[in-house]
Computed example of a mutant assay.
Amino acid sequence: MFPLERQKKILELLMIKKVLKISELTEELQVSVDTLRRDLNLLTKQGKIEKIYGGIKLVESKFGESTIDERMVSHLEEKESIAQKCCEYINDGDCIYIDSGSTTYQIAKYIKDKKKLTVVTNSIPVVNELLTSDVELIIIGGKVRQNEKSVVSYDYLFNFHELNISKAFICASGITIEKGISDYNLEETVTRKKMIELSKEVYVAVDSTKFNKDVTVGVASLDKIDYIITDHHLNKNFIPKFEKTSTNLIISE
C-alpha cells in the first residue's frame, strides 16, 4: 500500500472509530511502527489528526464545516447511492456542471461510459477522476482553495456566460424550506450561483444530514432548484413539506 493510500485509510478508520490506538493501526495496515509514525507525523502536520496518549484522533473542525478529506469518507454509502441516482438524469451528449462537493464528486465515478459528454467543473478531484476517460473536461479558471481541492472564480477571471450548461449538479451544506440551500464559504457560492443562473436544469445532490440546516451563506431559494436528490435516511416529515414547493424531491434507494 502506498503512503497516500495508507493515510486515506487512517482517516477513513478515524471517521468510524474517532480514536485509534497505535497498535490497532499497525495491525490493520500491516506496517511497522516507524512507517506508521511517518504517516501520522504528516497527517498531524497537515492538521488532519491529533496525537493523544497511545493513539490518535481526528482534529475537530473549528468553524462548522468539516474538511473535504473528512467529507469524502463520511456517509459514503449514501453519497454513492445519490450519485448513481443523479446519473440516471445524465444523457449522452449532455454538457453538465459538477460542483466541488464530496457527494457531487461521486457522480464522476459513474459517468465514464457516457458518450460525447462534456463536464464543466471547479473540482480538482473530479478532474483527476475523469482525466483518463473520454469525457471532455472544462475546468473553471481562478484561485485554488487547497484545503477544499477546488477552484473559486469571478466574472473577471472566467467568462461564465460562454458556457451552455444543460444540467448543473450542485452541492450544499444546508437545506431548509424557508431559505433554500446554503453553504459555509462565500467564494464557493459565487460559482454555484452562476451555475444555477446559467443551467437549464438544476440538481442539488446532498445527503440527508444537510436538511433542516441554514448555514453561513445563502446560495439559492428552492424556486431556483428543479430537483433535490438525497438518500433514504431523510426524515419522512420533510417529504410533505416539499410537495408544497416547485422543487422535486427524489430519494435514492
Rank of each mutant, 00 (worst) to 15 (best):
E148A: 15
K112T: 14
S123K: 07
K109D: 03
I96P: 04
I138T: 13
Y89F: 14
K79N: 09
T103M: 05
G93F: 09
K57E: 08
G141K: 10
V59K: 14
K45W: 01
I52P: 03
Y156C: 10
Y97E: 01
I56F: 01
Y154P: 00
N122V: 04
I68V: 15
A108M: 02
G64C: 02
N147E: 15
F169I: 08
K114M: 08
D92F: 08
I98Y: 04
L76K: 13
N159A: 12
Y97D: 06
S173E: 12
T67C: 09
V126I: 10
S100K: 03
E162L: 11
E80M: 14
V126A: 13
F169H: 07
N147G: 10
V73L: 01
L157Q: 13
G64I: 08
A83K: 02
T104Q: 11
I165T: 09
L42A: 00
I111G: 08
S150C: 11
V119D: 09
S100W: 02
I68H: 08
Y154H: 15
I82C: 05
D92C: 05
I96S: 01
V120M: 08
H75A: 10
I140F: 06
K112H: 06
S150F: 06
V119Q: 05
Q46Y: 11
E77A: 15
K116R: 14
Q106A: 06
D92W: 09
C87I: 04
E129I: 02
I165L: 10
S74W: 10
E162T: 11
C95E: 14
I49F: 01
I165Q: 08
T104V: 07
T67Q: 01
L42D: 06
G93Q: 07
L130F: 07
L43C: 02
N147Q: 14
I49S: 00
V135H: 04
L40S: 00
S153M: 07
C171N: 15
C171L: 08
E136F: 11
T132H: 14
I56C: 03
Y89D: 13
L157K: 13
L58S: 09
I56N: 00
K79H: 02
F160N: 04
L163I: 04
L163Q: 10
C86T: 05
Y105C: 00
E50G: 02
L43Q: 01
Y156R: 12
G141H: 04
S153C: 07
Q106L: 05
Y110R: 03
V59M: 08
E88F: 05
K143Y: 08
V126E: 06
R71V: 00
S102V: 04
K167I: 01
L117S: 08
L40K: 00
K109R: 15
G64R: 10
E148S: 13
I139L: 14
V120K: 09
I90W: 05
H161T: 13
T121Q: 02
